[in-house]
Amino acid sequence: MQDVLLDVQNLVVHFRVYGGYLKVLDGVTLQVRRQERVGLVGETGCGKTTTMKTIMGILPKPPGVVRGGRILFKGRDVLSMRPQELEHLRRSGISMIFQDPTAALNPVFTVGEQLEDAIRYALGRRDHASVREVALSALQSVALPDPPRILESYPVQLSGGMRQRVCIALALAYPKELLIADEPGTSLDVTIQDQILRLIHRLAEERKMAVILISHSLGVIREWTERVYVMYAGTIVEEAKTGELFARPLHPYTGALMRCVPKLTGTGIAEGIPGRIPDYFDPPAGCRFHPRCPHCMDICRQRKPQLFPVDENHRVACFLFGRNSRG
């Protein structure tokens, strides 16, 4: 496939702890095509952020250990890259914005100093005037009012929404092919979150950039992505075109999760999913969802289901939908 930008195959990541390992990622597989907006949805602790940190080459090692799998960005293996190559990748290939814009900005430097540093780093040495010009246009592109004033401001002088925009400007000061947005605007109000997501959407279109949108909110994923991966306990359990997934969720986890979301129809909230996310130190054998699954069969306790295509737009890792254990 020519147009695959990012190809993650069977990624296994563990964390060293006292007495053994936390087996967090258990074979994560996902692809992002050029200019595609992909969603990754899952609950707290399911491994979304670990996956993205590994892709960016910023997984702290130790305690993190990549036990297996491949990450190909434009056909090149990220996991075997040398530090300079990784730096180049982050400079001109992939950018990431984080959930907490306050933590991503240094409080003792002005926005301008941080932004100009990032631009100088990305472009190599440049004269002051042209760097400033790039900085101003970067702030303009994220629709911040009065860019010259913002350049002089310290992060504390900006609101949460403005800080998030500055983070986006920082991440995209130089053209990128993939933007990883980890829960953008989650800590902000709905109206501000809506504005931020709209901004990311617009920038992605203008710059022909692919986006991975990570969120725990099914609503956000439905509104802003084309294709979705549903993650549970370190594995991808379902993958589908966004419309298809919301119309016809197949994996028992996806279905249960959707029933838990409070609806505007006011029809009440389902009972929730019994149990809790497994202990990664000693995760359940077979399908990691089986202890919480109402449809659990014998095979689920023994074998790990692989992603199995139900149709061309929909794949699910569940034995209810075919004997995919050979895969």
Partner: peptide, 11 residues
């Protein structure tokens, strides 16, 4: 909290 946990608490 996550929605699956929220559901239980709300109920």
């Amino acid at each position: 909290l996550d929605v699956s946990i929220q559901a239980k608490i709300i109920n």
